[in-house]
Computed example of a mutant assay.
Amino acid sequence: MRIHRTLAEGCAGILREVFDQGRVLDRILEQVFRANPKWGKRDRGFIAETVFEVTRWRRALAFVAGSETLQALCAAQWNRAGLEVPEWWVWEGYRIPEMTAREELLGSEPRAIHESIPDWLDQRASEELGEEWDPQLTALNRRAPVFLRVNRLRLTPTEAIGWLLENGVESALVHGVPDALVLPDGRSLPKGLAGEGLVEIQDAGSQTIAPLLDVEPGMRVVDACAGAGGKTLHLAALMQGRGEIVAMDVSAAKLSELRRRAARAGTRIIRTETWREDTLKRYAGWADRVLIDAPCSGLGTLRRQPDLKWRLSEGALEKTRRLQRRLLDHYPGLLRPGGKFVYATCSVLPSENEGQIELLRERDGRFAVEEIRKTSPAGSGWDGFFAARLAVP
C-alpha cells in the first residue's frame, strides 16, 4: 500500500492527542473518521492499524527508531508492517536499514521496553503476579478478536450464527461461554447489524460476570456501576425479561446510551438512576442481588485499549483502590437479608481483586465468599476479569 501524506499526517495527529493530551484512542479515532467521511475502508484501516500498533508498542518502537518523536514511531511501525516509508516523511533517529537491524536486538532489552509498558507498571505487576506476569503481559499485547453476546431475548446462539452468515459474517461458538460468539481474526461487526439488537459486542471474559450473580426471573437487581450497560443487558436476558433492574451510574450520558441499547435489545425491566447523595438510603435493603462492577485500572483490557497503560499512573491506581474499598463498604447495604452481591473488575492485579475481598472480610466478617472466577488473558485468549460472589446473612 502506498502511504498518502494526508493519511500519514492524520496518524501523527491522532497520536499527538493520545500521547500529549491523554485522549482516549477509540474516541479520538471515531471523531477523526466522522470528520473525514471521504476516507474509504482501506484508508480507515491503515490509520487504525497505525495508531493502535504505535500506541501498543510505543517503547519498543522508540528503541527501534532511536527516537520518541511521533514521526519516528510511525516510520518504525510502517517498516515493521512491511510498508515503504515515503521519502517526504521526515523524522529524527535511525534510518530504515538501522531500524530493521535493531528489531533483532529488541528481545535482549528489559521487559518493559520489548513488551512496551511503563517501568513503574511493569514493576508493580511483577511484584503482585510474580512469574505469572510474563505470559499475561505477552497475551495483553496481542490483538483481540471481536466477541459477541447473543441476545437470548430475541434468538438463540445457533440462530444468531445463521443470521450473521446470511449477512456475510462468519462466527463460531465459544467454549465455556454459552451466549458468546467469536468472529474470525480481523473481522468486525458491521454497524448496521450492531443496530439490530440481536447481538452485542462484548468480550467473552466480560460475559462470565453476569451469570455469577445467580439471578432468577422476578428478582430485584441493582447494577451499581452500570456504565453503558453491557452487563446490565446480559442480566436482563438471564432474567428472561422479568423482574426489576436498577442501573446506576454517575454519568448521565452513559445511562442515556444504556436506555438506547435496552430499547434496541427489547427489554423493559431496566430503570436507570443517576447517582445521588441519597441513593444508598433510598435503596437500602431493596435488592436481591447487587453487581459492583467497580472502576479499576483496566489492565485486563489492554489488548483493546493499549492507550490505558500510558494514561495510568501510580497515583491514579491508588486512588482507584481507595474508591473500590468505599464501594465495598457501602453498596452491600442495598441488599435485603439473604441477598448476594458480585464484586468485579477488568484488572489482573490481585490488589484490586482478591486483595479487596480479603480487606472487606477483615473489616466486616459477615460476608461469605461463595465463588470466585478469574479469566486469564494468557490462559483463555479473552480479556482479564475477576469476579467474586459473596452472600449476606
Rank of each mutant, 00 (worst) to 15 (best):
R124L: 15
R389V: 13
A284N: 10
V169N: 03
K254L: 08
W163Q: 01
Q31P: 01
L359R: 14
E68G: 07
L165W: 13
S251K: 10
V174G: 04
E257Y: 02
W57H: 09
T100Q: 10
G381A: 11
A252Q: 12
G241T: 00
Q136P: 01
L61D: 02
W91K: 04
L7D: 03
T100G: 09
R143M: 08
R289S: 08
V342T: 05
R5P: 00
A8T: 02
E132C: 02
A378C: 07
A81S: 11
A236V: 08
K281H: 12
F385N: 09
T301I: 05
E84P: 04
I245S: 02
S251Q: 07
Q305T: 15
M248Q: 06
V85A: 10
W120T: 05
L334F: 14
R336E: 15
S297E: 13
I117K: 04
R366M: 03
V215F: 01
R187A: 11
L165H: 13
I96G: 02
V90T: 00
L105E: 15
L15I: 06
P37I: 09
G218P: 03
D134Y: 11
D364Q: 06
V392A: 07
T69H: 06
R259A: 06
K41W: 11
W88Y: 14
A139C: 06
R34L: 12
I357W: 12
L181E: 08
E128C: 09
L360I: 08
A139W: 07
A252V: 09
L137P: 07
I161M: 07
E109G: 02
Q21L: 08
F367T: 01
F19A: 01
S347A: 11
C11G: 03
R322M: 04
E127T: 09
R242T: 13
A387N: 02
R361W: 10
G66P: 12
V250F: 00
D26T: 15
P217A: 14
L7N: 03
E98M: 09
A48Q: 14
P110S: 04
Q240E: 15
A160N: 13
P332I: 00
D134T: 11
L359Q: 14
S206D: 02
W286K: 09
N353P: 08
K340E: 10
S206G: 04
V64Q: 07
M248H: 03
N167W: 13
D278Y: 04
A160R: 12
A247H: 01
